[in-house]
Amino acid sequence: MSPALPFGSAYGFGLYVHWPYCTKICPYCDFNVYAAKDRDNSALVRALGDDLARHARVLEGHPKLGSIYFGGGTPSLMAPAEIAGLVRQADALFGLEPDAEITLEANPNDVLGADLAAWAGAGVNRLSIGLQSLDDDALGFLGRDHDAAGARRAVELAARHFPNHTIDLIYARPGQSPKAWETELSEALSLGAPHLSLYELTIAERTAFGKRAERGELQPMPDDDQADLYELTQAVAETHGLPAYEVSNHARSRETQSKHNLTYWRGGDWIGLGPGAHGRLSLEGQRVATLAPLKPGDYIAAVSKTAGLAGEPLSPVDTARELLALGLRPGEGFDITRVETLTGAPPDLATLQAFIDEGFMHRTGERIALTPEGRLLADRIAAELSP
């Protein structure tokens, strides 16, 4: 039976928890993060729990949660008891699916210094480890506080407690050669992680890297060179048995694909807790976008003063655009009848056929998907097909 709506919990239901603090803010980071310093985080932890309860009052009738994702920031700075408390509360309020995926983002140094059994005891069953590189010079450039040897040890240690784990790497760094990236990526793949997230370096305006680029001190890699490295990435990962199942994500099997991220890409519902967290919810047949206040103090105050949710209903057209842009990212593709259900018309068929003829897309019935060549143009294709 097909879902009644072209979006919503029938496509997945997850919980995202944003922990905004980091011991060190990386020069490329464009996320809502703050220096950890020596803080009393009890008020924030209480606010997260109160916010979860507030969502539960509004979201009666939702299915059990299929995933919880602790992101940030650096949520591995949270105490295991704080993580466990939120997991227990989520289970009590919503229920957890028997195979619910519970991910914790962690930096290598935190993995090396943590009680991993305590994380597992708190309910975590998947680690996302922010390696970013296995080259010491690159790690210095990226502002990381670990070295390559520590990164390798962290992955080896994590694998003993969390067979389902993933590592992040950043490539297309200024001056990075194809040979150097192939060597680094091959070494990362040899660590045996069943999932990799591989991102090209983005120079965002408000970051330290962005300011350096404005002053001419940092030159981003040219687009054509980035494209060459992207194609090399796909070939090397596939050779090692981790083909891309999404533009930037690779998994050894369907079971090790990110269940939480698939909820985003498929147009499911998710609760966003924490400063600056985004959510997407289905309320009275509408797609509603939520955005929490950015500053931790403002977030805590807002949760304490507001009983309901501050959400903005998305128009059918905006919903269709978002579903299409996200739905084209995974290899499984996107059912274009979902756009027609929202807007009364499918994506422009002439434009779609042109992309198919050029080898950037393929179509099976009503489902469209990007080819490996098309993934390089994912944003452009989604924009041109959008209603």
Rank of each mutant, 00 (worst) to 15 (best):
G71D: 01
G72V: 05
G72F: 12
G73M: 02
G73P: 08
T74V: 11
P75H: 04
L77M: 13
M78W: 11
A79R: 15
I83G: 15
I83H: 13
I83K: 14
G85M: 08
L86W: 00
L86F: 04
V87Y: 08
V87R: 03
R88P: 01
Q89V: 08
A90S: 10
A92Q: 03
A92R: 03
F94K: 11
F94V: 11
F94L: 08
G95F: 02
G95Y: 06
G95D: 12
G95W: 09
E97H: 04
P98M: 10
P98G: 13
E101W: 07
E101N: 14
I102F: 06
I102M: 06
T103H: 09
L104M: 09
E105Y: 03
N107Y: 13
N107C: 08
P108R: 06
V111A: 13
L112P: 00
L112Q: 01
G113I: 05
D115R: 09
L116P: 04
L116D: 06
A117V: 14
A117P: 14
A118K: 13
A118N: 14
A118W: 15
W119E: 10
A120C: 03
A120K: 15
A120P: 02
G121N: 13
G121P: 09
A122K: 06
G123Y: 07
G123T: 03
V124P: 10
R126L: 01
L127W: 06
S128C: 06
I129M: 11
G130K: 02
G130W: 02
Q132P: 02
S133T: 04
S133V: 04
S133R: 12
L134T: 10
L134R: 06
L134A: 06
D137P: 00
A138V: 12
A138H: 14
L139N: 14
G140D: 11
G140F: 07
G140C: 09
